[in-house]
Amino acid sequence: MSGKKPKSVSFNDKNEREKEIMDWIEEEGISFAPFVKDLLYDAMRRRKDGLRIIQKNNGGGIKIVVGNTTPLHR
């Protein structure tokens, strides 16, 4: 047994939003499964990690990062 558990996603080309997504994926040459896995992982990490202050300066400013992000798969 491979341990893989496929999850399907259906798009309706009559739905303008879903058609726009499909067109964008095709135009960008995105590898769909790795891209979706990265999106899901990023969402999971943001929910687990919350906001993190990563830099403070003497003027009182701060830099905040929401979770971890990964590069887009092309």
Results as ranks from 00 to 15, higher is better:
Ile54Ala: 08
Val66Gln: 10
Thr70Glu: 14
Lys19Asn: 03
Lys48Ile: 00
Asn12Ile: 01
Gly50Met: 05
Arg45Thr: 00
Ser2Phe: 11
Ile64Gln: 12
Asp38Gly: 07
Glu27Cys: 01
Gly29Gln: 03
Lys5Val: 14
Asp42Ala: 05
Asn68Glu: 11
Ile21His: 07
Glu20Pro: 00
Gly3Pro: 01
Gly3Trp: 05
Ile62Asn: 11
Lys56Leu: 14
Lys4Leu: 15
Lys7Leu: 15
Phe11His: 09
Phe35Gln: 09
Gly60Gln: 03
Arg47Leu: 01
Lys4Gln: 13
Ala43Glu: 01
Thr70Trp: 12
Arg45Gly: 02
Leu51Arg: 14
Leu51Asn: 10
Gly29Phe: 01
Lys63Ser: 08
Val65Gln: 11
Lys37Ile: 14
Gly50Glu: 04
Asn12Gln: 04
Pro34Asn: 09
Val36Ala: 15
Lys7Gln: 13
His73Asn: 13
Asn57Met: 10
Pro34Val: 09
Glu28Trp: 04
Asn68Thr: 12
Asn68Ser: 13
Leu51Gln: 14
Asn68Met: 05
Ile53Met: 12
Arg45Trp: 00
Lys5Arg: 13
Thr69Asn: 04
Asn57Ser: 15
Ala43Asn: 04
Asn12Pro: 00
Lys4Asn: 11
Ala43Pro: 00
Asn57Trp: 10
Lys7Cys: 13
Asn57Phe: 06
Ser2Ile: 10
Asn68Val: 12
Ile54Tyr: 05
Val9Pro: 08
Gly29Ile: 03
Ile25Asn: 02
Asn68Arg: 12
Asp49Phe: 02
Arg52Thr: 15
Lys48Ser: 01
Arg74Lys: 15
Ser2Ala: 12
Leu72Asp: 15
Met22Thr: 08
Phe11Leu: 15
Ile64Phe: 14
Arg47Trp: 00
Met22Pro: 04
Asn15Asp: 15
Ile25Val: 12
Phe35Leu: 03
Trp24Asn: 05
Ala33Phe: 02
Glu16Lys: 13
Gln55Leu: 13
Lys5His: 13
Val9Phe: 15
Gln55Ala: 13
Lys14Ile: 04
Leu51His: 08
Ala43His: 01
Arg45Gln: 09
Lys14Trp: 03
Val36Met: 14
Asp42Phe: 00
Asp13Ile: 10
Gly67His: 04
Gln55Ile: 07
Arg45Ala: 01
Arg45His: 00
Ile62Pro: 07
Gly59Tyr: 06
Met22Ser: 07
Ile54His: 06
Ile21Ser: 04
Asp38Arg: 07
Lys19Ala: 02
Val9Lys: 11
Lys56Trp: 14
Lys5Asn: 11
Glu28Tyr: 05
Met22His: 05
Gly61Pro: 08
Gly3His: 10
Lys19Trp: 02
Lys4Ala: 14
Glu16His: 05
Ile30Ser: 00
Asn12Gly: 02
Leu51Cys: 06
Arg45Met: 09
His73Ala: 10
Glu18Thr: 10
Phe11Asn: 10
Ala43Gln: 04
Glu16Thr: 11
Ile21Asp: 01
Lys37Thr: 13
Asn68Leu: 07
Glu16Gly: 09
Asp23Pro: 01
Glu28Asn: 14
Leu51Pro: 06
Pro6Glu: 11
Ile64Lys: 11
Lys4Thr: 13
Trp24Ser: 05
Trp24Glu: 10
Met44Glu: 03
Ala33Glu: 14
Ala33Thr: 12
